[in-house]
């Protein structure tokens, strides 16, 4: 069963320089919310930003990870 920490680590590994916060919404290890801040999202549409995060987990989303709610943003201080 995936944990919030595992999801956080995997997103941070896959999207370099990202700041990630993952919350287990139900405590059951299958409904998560991820907030991801990264300058990697600059110039991408919301769909493309969210797909980058979904792509970290591939077919696990919809499987062991029943639901992954995503909020993406770009650092307000600009690219660093």
């Amino acid at each position: 069963m995936p944990s919030s920490d595992e999801l956080k680590r995997r997103i941070e590994t896959a999207i370099p320089n990202s700041i990630v916060n993952v919350e287990d919404l139900t405590g059951g290890g299958d409904h998560f919310r991820a907030e991801v801040v990264s300058d990697r999202f600059a110039g991408l549409s919301r769909i493309q930003q969210h797909k980058l995060v979904y792509d970290v987990f591939g077919a696990e989303v919809g499987g062991p990870i029943h639901a992954l709610s995503i909020k993406t943003s770009i650092p307000s201080g600009g690219a660093t």
């Binding site: 919301r46 769909i47 969210h50 979904y54 989303v61 709610s69 909020k71």
Partner: peptide
């Protein structure tokens, strides 16, 4: 649907033939 859209979860909203997103994106928009 997911094979077609490349989007893994439900719901999925399409406007004018383009995927807009799921619940999070639609709510934000």
């Amino acid at each position: 649907l997911s094979g077609l859209s490349g989007w893994p979860t439900i719901p999925q909203l399409f406007v004018d033939g383009e995927l807009v997103g799921g619940c999070d994106i639609v709510t934000e928009m």
